[in-house]
Computed example of a mutant assay.
Amino acid sequence: MSHQISVCYGEPTDPTAFDEYYRTIHIPLTTRVPGLAGFTWGKCASLDGSTPAYYAVAHLLFSSEEDLLQALDSPQMREAGRDVRNFATGGVTMYTQKLEPTTP
């Protein structure tokens, strides 16, 4: 069963600066986390045209709960976590999930 960390970023005070920092500094830090099986991120848009609850959301995927727990305890994850305060001026919400497989 795979697990993931979701990181939800609020609207930054300077979206251009956020995007540049995120792409050039933060993503390289994050992709060094041990046990990381996948990483995606994207900017949010609401279906009804209103302002979405989050500016962007990132997902860090791990193959097992053990991999997730080891990653959370790693120096690389601590470094990436400390880095968030350098660019996430709109706040951030983070949580983990145990992903349940479904069939369409």
Rank of each mutant, 00 (worst) to 15 (best):
P101T: 14
G91Y: 07
G90L: 05
F39W: 14
V92S: 05
A71R: 10
Y9L: 08
L29Q: 12
F18C: 05
K43N: 12
V84Q: 03
A58S: 14
C8F: 09
V57F: 08
L29Y: 06
G10M: 05
Q76W: 06
S6T: 14
S6W: 11
M1L: 10
G90F: 02
Q76R: 03
G81N: 12
S2C: 11
H26E: 06
M1C: 10
T96M: 12
R78P: 00
P34Q: 09
A58Y: 05
A80I: 02
F62S: 01
G81K: 02
M94T: 14
T51F: 00
G38N: 05
E66T: 13
R23C: 01
A17I: 04
Y21G: 00
A80H: 01
P28H: 03
S2V: 14
G35M: 08
A45D: 04
Y95K: 03
D48T: 11
L60Y: 14
L61F: 13
A17E: 12
T51H: 08
Q70L: 10
S2F: 07
R85D: 08
P52C: 12
E11H: 15
A45N: 07
Q70S: 04
A45K: 05
V84K: 06
I5C: 04
Y54F: 15
F18R: 04
I27Q: 06
S6P: 02
D14P: 03
H26W: 08
C8Q: 14
L68D: 00
E66H: 11
K98N: 11
T102I: 15
L36C: 05
I25Y: 04
T24F: 07
T30A: 14
S46N: 10
E79L: 11
Q76M: 08
E79H: 07
E20M: 04
A58W: 05
R32G: 04
A88G: 00
A56L: 09
M77I: 01
S6D: 11
Q4H: 13
F18H: 09
F87S: 03
L29R: 12
L72F: 09
Y54T: 03
T103R: 15
G90T: 02
P104I: 12
Y22T: 01
H26A: 03
H3A: 04
P101D: 15
